[in-house]
């Protein structure tokens, strides 16, 4: 009986002492040490899942390594993989296809997204409902989007072809969106624009809602025209948000894979073979791991370099 009553007392005492000892030890640490203590787990995680694979990829990019032949002798090939990629016409073709896709999707998404944001910002009756409806495409999985647009683009039974045929009076099967060399690149641009314009709209809407009303009131007192208000107030104040949207969409579309793979598999021929599809084929179908590592590094440096230049421009715009 004595024992049982003394045990809780002892355990309470130990439990009470432990935090105070720990707190005492923490109190002895400098702010800098404390900061390191808190961010160390995150840094370790980042090192393990980001930095280590990156360094390993860089190392592999200088070798002839193939993941499907682990027993083959590993050979240091210097910059051969890089030279071979940069002199490969197929790679340059893939880069052109990527650039075409990125430039056009961003242009269209910015124009349409900004336009939609201006409309939604007017706070008409039911604008909340319409905002939700417009946002629906970006909530879908790219795999789902790729699959159902494949059905929509079917020349014989697809809703898209039927609708175009209804408007133009032509035969629905007289054109093929994803099977025609001329139309296929525009098909993937169309689908991406349909899916991601709401995202750009959302960012622009945030920008528009952040503009204080009194600036517009002052402009009205000065009798500024609607065009003048748009040009001198709305656009400059939304510009940082727009530029942010362009940055996000640019990075995302530069590495676009899933939707294009499902819609066209890079075809017809190699018409829509964007860089990430080429990379996937080299890495996981041909198993040229060293070569594809070099290609991945080239793509990474390209995106990283362009994004850095862009962020500097964005900061300048913000400072204005």
């Amino acid at each position: 009986m004595t024992e049982t009553s003394s045990l809780p007392f002892l355990s309470v005492g130990t439990a009470a002492e432990a935090p105070s000892q720990f707190a005492g030890r923490l109190r002895g640490l400098s702010d800098r040490a404390m900061a390191w203590l808190f961010i160390a787990p995150t840094i370790l995680l980042l090192l393990a899942i980001n930095v280590f694979p990156l360094l390993w990829t860089i190392e592999l990019s200088f070798t002839n390594y193939r993941a499907n032949r682990p027993n083959a002798p590993l050979r240091w090939v210097g910059f051969d993989n890089y030279a071979s990629i940069l002199s490969d016409s197929d790679v340059w073709y893939a880069m052109q296809a990527t650039a075409h896709f990125v430039v056009w999707t961003i242009t269209l998404q910015v124009l349409l997204g900004f336009g939609l944001a201006l409309l939604i910002n007017r706070r008409f009756r039911g604008h909340g409902f319409w905002t939700t409806v417009i946002l629906l495409p970006m909530m879908l999985s790219p795999a789902v989007v790729g699959n159902f647009w494949t059905f929509l683009f079917q020349p014989q039974t697809g809703l898209f072809n039927t609708a175009i045929a209804f408007v133009t009076g032509s035969d629905p099967s007289s054109f093929q969106m994803i099977g025609d060399v001329g139309l296929a690149p525009w098909s993937i641009i169309l689908v991406d624009t349909w899916m991601w314009t709401p995202y750009v709209m959302l960012i622009c809407l945030a920008g528009l809602r952040s503009i204080p009303d009194d600036i517009y009131e002052a402009a009205e007192i000065d009798r500024a025209s609607a065009w003048r208000r748009f040009w001198s107030i709305t656009l400059p104040m939304v510009l940082p948000f727009l530029m942010l949207a362009v940055l996000f969409r640019g990075i995302e579309n530069f590495k676009m894979f899933d939707m294009v793979n499902l819609l066209t598999s890079g075809g017809p021929g190699s018409t829509t073979e964007v860089a990430s599809i080429t990379l996937k084929r080299e890495a996981f179908e041909k198993w040229r791991t060293g070569y594809s590592s070099a290609f991945a590094i080239i793509l990474f440096v390209t995106v990283f370099g362009l994004a850095n230049i862009y962020v500097k421009a964005l900061n300048k715009v913000k400072q204005r």
Binding site: V181, P268, K286
Partner: peptide
């Protein structure tokens, strides 16, 4: 796999994409 992917590309380029 490398041999097959090359053939896929060259045949599709010619037959389907008219290149």
């Amino acid at each position: 796999a490398s041999l097959l992917l090359s053939m896929q590309k060259r045949m599709h380029d010619y037959v389907i994409a008219d290149q």
